[in-house]
């Protein structure tokens, strides 16, 4: 059963942002708690919930702050370039 890709599971969890994963996890839990679900749906929701939780926890633990600097080029064109935290100089 777990080998079969569920029909609703179209979005790859690894590509979700923290907020997206958290929102889906919250929806899954709410649906589970509401009850009256078919067995398959319960299992599907739970499995996906576990994966969503792992995604969120992984992001929380492993994320590294990304720092950019907004630079204005000629003609007022803006660009965000990656910068280092300790990079103090202009």
């Amino acid at each position: 059963m777990s080998d079969q890709p569920a029909a609703g599971q179209t979005v790859d969890i690894a590509s979700l942002t923290f907020d997206e994963a958290l929102a889906e996890l919250q929806r899954s839990v709410a649906e589970l708690e509401q009850g009256g679900l078919a067995l398959e749906r319960s299992i599907e929701l739970y499995e996906r919930g576990v994966a969503l939780h792992e995604r969120c926890a992984g992001l929380l633990g492993q994320a590294e702050l990304r720092v950019q600097r907004l630079v204005e080029r000629a003609a007022g064109e803006l660009a965000a370039v990656d910068a280092r935290t300790e990079d103090g100089a202009e």
């Binding site: 299992i43 739970y46 919930g49 939780h53």
Partner: peptide
């Protein structure tokens, strides 16, 4: 997050 996971697990277990 941990609380959400606990609730999901609890309900799934009860349902089944």
């Amino acid at each position: 997050l941990r609380e959400l996971a606990r609730r999901a697990g609890g309900h799934a277990g009860r349902v089944l």
